[in-house]
Amino acid sequence: MDLIKPDLGLLFWTGLVFCLLLFLLAKFAWKPILNAVNARGQKIQEALDLAEKTRAEMQLLQAENDKIIKEARAERDLIVKDAKETATKMIEDAKTKSKIEADKIVEGARTSILMEKNAAIAELKTQVAGISLSIAEKIVRQELSSDEKQKSLANKLADDVNMN
């Protein structure tokens, strides 16, 4: 029975010592320890949160970068396409223009050739007329060189007229 009989003296000392221990530890040990440990826990949590946030931001940035690159690529493609089109058009235009020019030149040449030809023909006609005239004059001179000849001619001409 002695074993389970509480002892007044021990109860007193236990109470006194334990309460003192509780007071001293609460004030000088638990408070700084728990403050430090919990502050550290908070710091770690904050660091983790920050890392998470930074990662999300990085991801966002990456996505944005990707978007920008994609847009730039699309724009480049568009520009190249435009340029190609423009170039093609320019070549086409030039071709058309040069053809028109060539045609025009050809036409001009043709016209001038025609004109030259006409002028040549006209001159030729004039010369031929001159030559013919002089030949005719010579012939006429020959025909009319004697009286007989003049008389035959006159007869002949009169025949022509009579016949009509």
Binding site: L25, A29, I33
Partner: peptide, 11 residues
């Protein structure tokens, strides 16, 4: 006490 106070002094 000694153990805990020395731990506390570390922090």
């Amino acid at each position: 006490l000694v153990l805990m106070l020395s731990v506390a002094s570390f922090y």
